[in-house]
Design a protein around this nucleic acid. Sequence first.
RNA 1: CGGGGCGUAGCGCAGCCUGGUUAGCGCGCCUGCCUUGGGAGCAGGAGGUCGCAGGUUCGAAUCCUGCCGCCCCGACCA
Length: 579
Amino acid sequence: MRYSQMLIPTTRETPAEAEVVSHQLLLRGGFIRKLASGIYTYLPLGLAAVQKVARIVREEMNRAGAQELLMPMVQPADLWKESGRWQKYGTELLRFTDRHDRESCLGPTHEEVITDLARNELQSYRQLPMNLYQIQTKFRDEIRPRFGLMRGREFVMKDAYSFDVDDAAAGRAYDRMYEAYHRIFRRCGLDFRAVEADTGTIGGSFSHEFMVLASTGEDTLVICGQCDYAANVEKARVVIRPGQQEGGSERIEDVKKVETPGMKKVDTVAGFLGVTIDRLIKTMVYLADGEPVAVLVRGDREVQPVKLKNLLGATEVELADDETVYKKTGLPIGYLGPVNLPLRMAADQEVMLMKNCIAGANEKQFHLTGVQPGRDFQPVLTGDLRQITADDRCPSCGGSLTLTEGIEVGHIFKLGTAYSEVMRATFQDREGQARPFVMGCYGIGVSRVVAAAIEQNHDENGIIFPLPLAPCQVIVLNLGVNSEETTSAAERLYEELRQGGLEVLYDDRDERPGAKFKDADLLGIPYRVTVGKTFEKEGKVEIRRRRDGHTETVPCGQAAGFIVELVRGELAAFESNGK
RNA sequence: CGGGGCGUAGCGCAGCCUGGUUAGCGCGCCUGCCUUGGGAGCAGGAGGUCGCAGGUUCGAAUCCUGCCGCCCCGACCA
């Protein structure tokens, strides 16, 4: 590729709209351009990077025995009505009618279509197991698209669906994907973790998310330092420590009402009463599918909404704002408490172990002391409702935990028979009985992987692509475009590198050296070869590694062979890493 | 959808509050000279429905109304 002929519109300044690094650098490096909110054009270099990821994904899916197909983007509403998701999916599903007034939607995912295909084409247990996947553009009318490729409305996704005869077989399919995903992200050269996750709206029983570790991640993970336990905080189980169970030998007090003028926050109340905030019970009102629920956690804890949602069996929970709380309960915010609270209550397990607590009195300017859970109030539901913290112990081995941010790039689910049952997708087993397929589904955000790779690999000068994801492996800088000798040497080198099977960007532009260096850094191409002054003086070129600036000077004639070896060796290491 | 902010040249911004010359500046772009190892210099030049529509006014980028678009904070997710 000759730089002078390519569309690589780099900019020196950062566009104002970009908040996170990957978005900034993708824009500055001329990888993408925005067409509308959350909708981007992939320019040649951006497309190249996406295709690098897609290729690795494709190879590993095929290796794992999955078959590639391509499903339509436009899907009939009938199918979605059948699965029940026409109602359930909400406004993220972009719906429209065609010229014949037929209701349709743009596919945000393809469970319906694949299940329809399976029920039509798979009749016998002898055709199973089957795993089908596609790499395709998805459309989700995100409430709030942001961060460039990280959360677009339109994005490239690999989605795979497995069909099996029973749970055990489906479990094996799941495990195979779990392995394949590890190979994929290892081959991409990413620092990632597989974590236990909540299943969300896709439903199903069990799932893992694949998280690229990066501080800009939208998810928080807990990782155990002693064993291999790792989970999304939405899911991470909080275990009660043995000491906590028995409680202290404190004398049990009676409920007393104390005046706490103007004190609504837990820490001001605790400060006023001269106790630590873990003596308080925090009462928050949530709306679960529109119905108010009081949620109780210890004063120093945070409610984990996903856990709450699951415990209540609700499809949606949100924290009620002050006005709503007042309207629904008539109670003063800041003075809510569980004693005689006329609301459905859900308590975190930890609350029930507390003694002599302080809580709101459900009366303005008053709190209660000496509150005993179980004696003075009894919640309808108790369970693990709070967010895990770094002070908690690993639920699996009791080891110490670390919290980290991550970007979700993959998610695998055991779906069971959720879709096959409602859509009557069955096969005949050995006995001739009709049985629903046991399914799994497996997604990878292909375009998001590119963004995540950049979040994880960049410096102040620009992107530092992991070798397997780089749009090209080498950039050759001709710093003497006016010198015939330098130019012919650079051209020869470019040719030799290509002959050696490398993807090369040849900077033949009539630009000053500074501009070429800056662009080369910005684009994040792993190796840079400079043909310039050193060549003119000594017949040598400089080979510089983007990641750490390590530079070697070699005679021009040997350069191509040297680089080809280097790159091949490194790429092979990534590939075997995947195996 | 709720809360906050922005829309002026390809990009980054000023001008608007307090209406009034040909609407500026930096980067980029074009031409020429010069320069060539970390985004040079000089000279000349092109490029604008001031987001859209309506209103107020002798006069609107500037004031008012409505609409549209974009960004940030929350719920959603690959």
